[in-house]
Simulated assay, not measured.
Amino acid sequence: MTDTDDLLRLENQLCFAVVTAARNVVAIYRPILEPLGLTHPQYLVMLALWERAPRSLNDLAADLALEPATASPLVKRLEADGLVARQRSSEDERR
Protein backbone atom coordinates (compact mmCIF):
# COMPACT_ATOMS: atom_id res chain seq x y z
CA MET A 1 0.00 0.00 0.00
CA THR A 2 1.34 3.42 -0.94
CA ASP A 3 1.24 6.59 1.16
CA THR A 4 -1.55 7.90 -1.08
CA ASP A 5 -3.57 4.75 -0.50
CA ASP A 6 -3.05 5.11 3.23
CA LEU A 7 -4.43 8.66 3.12
CA LEU A 8 -7.58 7.33 1.47
CA ARG A 9 -8.30 4.76 4.17
CA LEU A 10 -11.65 5.37 5.83
CA GLU A 11 -10.09 5.57 9.28
CA ASN A 12 -7.87 8.43 8.08
CA GLN A 13 -10.75 10.57 6.79
CA LEU A 14 -11.67 13.61 8.87
CA CYS A 15 -15.21 13.53 7.47
CA PHE A 16 -15.66 9.99 8.83
CA ALA A 17 -14.43 11.01 12.28
CA VAL A 18 -16.81 14.01 12.32
CA VAL A 19 -19.83 11.93 11.26
CA THR A 20 -19.00 9.29 13.85
CA ALA A 21 -18.64 11.91 16.58
CA ALA A 22 -21.97 13.50 15.59
CA ARG A 23 -23.71 10.14 15.70
CA ASN A 24 -22.25 9.48 19.16
CA VAL A 25 -23.44 12.87 20.45
CA VAL A 26 -26.97 12.18 19.19
CA ALA A 27 -26.88 8.75 20.86
CA ILE A 28 -25.96 10.39 24.19
CA TYR A 29 -28.90 12.80 23.94
CA ARG A 30 -31.44 10.17 22.82
CA PRO A 31 -32.34 8.76 26.27
CA ILE A 32 -32.70 12.30 27.63
CA LEU A 33 -34.87 13.55 24.76
CA GLU A 34 -37.07 10.47 24.21
CA PRO A 35 -39.19 11.04 27.35
CA LEU A 36 -39.78 14.60 26.10
CA GLY A 37 -40.88 13.31 22.70
CA LEU A 38 -38.10 15.22 20.95
CA THR A 39 -35.55 14.20 18.39
CA HIS A 40 -32.13 15.82 18.51
CA PRO A 41 -32.90 18.14 15.55
CA GLN A 42 -36.18 19.16 17.21
CA TYR A 43 -34.28 19.85 20.42
CA LEU A 44 -31.92 22.16 18.54
CA VAL A 45 -34.92 24.02 17.10
CA MET A 46 -36.35 24.43 20.60
CA LEU A 47 -33.01 25.73 21.91
CA ALA A 48 -32.84 28.29 19.11
CA LEU A 49 -36.41 29.40 19.84
CA TRP A 50 -35.74 29.64 23.57
CA GLU A 51 -32.87 31.99 22.76
CA ARG A 52 -34.98 34.23 20.57
CA ALA A 53 -38.62 34.12 19.56
CA PRO A 54 -40.60 34.97 17.63
CA ARG A 55 -38.49 34.65 14.53
CA SER A 56 -38.88 33.81 10.89
CA LEU A 57 -38.30 30.33 9.55
CA ASN A 58 -35.44 31.63 7.39
CA ASP A 59 -33.75 33.18 10.43
CA LEU A 60 -34.23 30.01 12.46
CA ALA A 61 -32.88 27.85 9.64
CA ALA A 62 -29.84 30.10 9.24
CA ASP A 63 -28.97 29.85 12.94
CA LEU A 64 -29.30 26.06 12.76
CA ALA A 65 -27.23 25.85 9.55
CA LEU A 66 -30.19 24.25 7.77
CA GLU A 67 -32.09 24.96 4.60
CA PRO A 68 -35.56 26.41 5.31
CA ALA A 69 -37.04 23.37 3.51
CA THR A 70 -35.34 21.17 6.10
CA ALA A 71 -36.28 23.30 9.11
CA SER A 72 -39.93 23.65 8.08
CA PRO A 73 -40.94 20.01 8.73
CA LEU A 74 -39.20 20.16 12.12
CA VAL A 75 -41.21 23.23 13.10
CA LYS A 76 -44.43 21.73 11.71
CA ARG A 77 -43.93 18.61 13.83
CA LEU A 78 -43.26 20.71 16.93
CA GLU A 79 -46.45 22.65 16.19
CA ALA A 80 -48.43 19.41 15.77
CA ASP A 81 -47.10 18.33 19.17
CA GLY A 82 -48.27 21.62 20.69
CA LEU A 83 -44.77 22.85 21.50
CA VAL A 84 -44.65 25.87 19.18
CA ALA A 85 -47.10 28.05 17.31
CA ARG A 86 -46.54 29.31 13.81
CA GLN A 87 -48.07 32.55 12.66
CA ARG A 88 -47.85 34.35 9.34
CA SER A 89 -46.43 37.84 9.40
CA SER A 90 -49.09 40.50 8.90
CA GLU A 91 -46.51 42.52 6.96
CA ASP A 92 -45.40 39.71 4.64
CA GLU A 93 -47.58 36.59 4.43
CA ARG A 94 -44.67 34.60 2.98
CA ARG A 95 -43.00 34.82 6.42
Rank of each mutant, 00 (worst) to 15 (best):
A69W: 01
E34G: 00
R77K: 15
G82A: 04
V84T: 06
L57I: 09
M46H: 05
N24A: 14
A62E: 10
S89I: 02
L78P: 10
D59F: 06
V45A: 10
L44C: 15
M1Y: 01
A22R: 10
L64K: 05
L83N: 07
D6A: 09
G37P: 01
R77Q: 14
T70D: 03
E11R: 07
N58V: 12
P68H: 04
R30L: 00
P31G: 02
I28A: 08
L10Q: 03
D92K: 15
L74H: 14
R86N: 01
L44V: 07
A71Q: 08
S89F: 01
N12S: 06
P41N: 05
R77D: 09
L66C: 08
K76S: 15
L49D: 12
L33V: 07
D63A: 11
S89D: 15
V25L: 13
R9N: 04
R23Q: 13
A22T: 07
R94A: 06
T70N: 01
R52C: 12
L47G: 10
L83W: 02
R52Q: 15
D81T: 04
L66G: 01
Q13L: 10
A65S: 07
R77Y: 08
R23D: 09
K76F: 10
G82V: 14
L7D: 13
L47Y: 01
R55Q: 14
P31C: 06
A27S: 13
L8T: 06
R55M: 12
P73G: 12
L49M: 09
A48D: 05
